[in-house]
């Protein structure tokens, strides 16, 4: 589904040039769950941002089911993003002024889904995420795990083809972290492609394939046999 070739990204400040991505090649098949690991500063977040069209690389190619995405303008990128992608962040990034329901509803509004259908979709996902009794609450009234569930729900409500997760368990304790990982696995099992950046090999063990980055290069790729066997 995703074909990334020779991706290069350089951060420039007045004095220093930092190469974040140095000729990355990466293929992700539809329905895969890929983890990206690596030490701090290896470029994994940059890669995720580029995949999410939040950042532009200097050169290279990024094809999403045969569509070249790097040549799109801002407007087209926005459109593509809202139709095909969902995001989950380490620090949840829920809007504090909106309730749980309204937070989840927001992407549907940007996708111009009619109100009645929105309501139905949001209610469905709220039920699936087991946060029905929280739907009128504001983010600050929830625990971290609950907030991340809401964030996941928000990422899923548009039924995206690709979910990008940036250290989704980074701000959670291990039991809440496991809950979120199980949620992502369930999601993957229903056919959604997931790319996740993580520091935790425990979290990575939930995925099909683990990619190791260092200094902007892919240094190794590993098929996660246990998980694949489990699936078979």
């Amino acid at each position: 589904m995703i074909k990334i070739e020779n991706l290069e990204k350089v951060y420039k400040t007045e004095e220093v040039e930092t190469t974040a991505l140095n000729g990355i090649n990466l293929h992700v098949a539809a329905g895969e769950f890929v983890s990206i690991m690596g030490p701090s500063g290896c470029g994994k977040s940059t890669l995720l941002n580029v995949m999410g069209l939040l950042d532009k690389p200097e050169s290279g190619s990024y094809k999403f089911i045969d569509t070249e995405l790097l040549t799109l303008n801002d407007r087209e990128r926005s459109n593509f993003r809202k139709k095909n992608m969902g995001f989950v962040f380490q620090n949840f990034n829920l809007i504090d002024e909106l309730t749980v329901f309204e937070n989840i509803e927001l992407p549907l509004i940007y996708n111009k889904i009619p109100a009645a259908e929105r309501k139905q979709l949001v209610n469905e996902i709220i039920e699936r995420m087991n946060i029905v009794n929280r739907s009128g609450h504001f983010p600050q009234q929830l625990s971290g795990g609950q907030q991340q569930r809401v964030a996941v729900a928000r990422a899923l409500v548009t039924k995206p083809k690709l979910v990008l997760a940036d250290e989704p368990t980074g701000n959670l304790d291990s039991s809440h972290g496991n809950e979120v990982m199980e949620l992502l696995c369930e999601l993957n099992e229903t056919g959604t492609t997931i790319v996740m950046v993580t520091h935790s090999s425990h979290d990575a063990s939930f995925s099909n394939r683990i990619i190791n980055l260092k200094d902007g290069h892919v240094i190794s790729e590993k098929i996660n046999k246990s998980r694949n066997e489990e699936l078979i």
Binding site: G52, L54, D74, N79, F87, N93, I95, P107, Y110, N111
Partner: peptide, 14 residues
């Protein structure tokens, strides 16, 4: 800032 970021991620135009 966060609100703007999220909305953009969700596909809001500038």
């Amino acid at each position: 800032a966060k609100e703007v970021g999220i909305k953009k991620v969700m596909g809001a135009y500038r």
